[in-house]
Design a protein around this nucleic acid. Structure first.
Lengths: 112, 112
DNA sequence: CAATCATTTCGATATTTTTCGAAATAAGGC
DNA sequence: GCCTTATTTCGAAAAATATCGAAATGATTG
């Protein structure tokens, strides 16, 4: 599975990222990781805190990390997850709002 | 259906809002409305621009507006939709990021 | 290399979401 | 009231997602 953030953010990738955030459990997972800060948490600890069983958590973390919102790195026996949400959420907001009013009819634009 | 933004944003509402954004079609709809600016667009025009049939668009707009991202108002024979995404997306970012590092172990905090 | 601990894959089921077309509802004009 | 236009509801089928437990994989320790 790819963990990097490839292309700049097209419609497909942005929708996938929002969809990754669009589940109560995954949002709880991500917020727990955001709270944990850059040190991150192991899958096991994360599962305990959020109350999700192993295989289900694997599934959700996979979705979050392929959306570029979480990184995973093996550390000894454990996999440490950490939130990368900071920049990513910024990008998502921009993706959504950047072109605000681009199609608006320029009522009082002298060049209209 | 409720179109207002009730409570401050709990996990359930935030997840619903992200889920609303987490579909290519709905994201395209919302971006089209953001581009259209505060004047908004009728359901019909919106459907033409995004390339979605009537009943499907109704379905998607319903999801967007109950997430508080779009408003609807009847104007003559048409229903005019407009994006309210601006504040809402801001709130969503905050919801996600506000408690950053709250659980982080304070390594170099003298009060640790 | 056997034992153990942490995580993932597999396979299966239940639920939710998406999408469509046809019929129903709502508003405006004659 | 009837006709046209705009949108929504209904009912149904297809696709995607969520969830679980058991078995498999990978890393560490003795």
């Amino acid at each position: 599975m790819k963990m990097e953030s490839p292309s700049p953010l097209d419609l497909t990738r942005a929708a996938a990222a929002f969809a990754a955030l669009g589940s109560e459990q995954r949002l709880a997972v991500l917020r727990t990781l955001v709270r944990a800060g850059p040190e991150g948490l192991s899958i096991g600890t994360l599962g305990e805190r959020v109350g999700v069983t192993g295989s289900t958590l694997t599934h959700h973390v996979k979705i979050l990390s392929s959306a570029g919102l979480v990184t995973q790195a093996r550390q000894g026996r454990s996999i440490i997850c950490a939130a990368v949400a900071f920049d990513e959420v910024q990008d998502l907001s921009e993706f959504l709002l950047t072109e605000c009013c681009a199609d608006s009819t320029p009522k009082d634009d002298p060049n209209g």
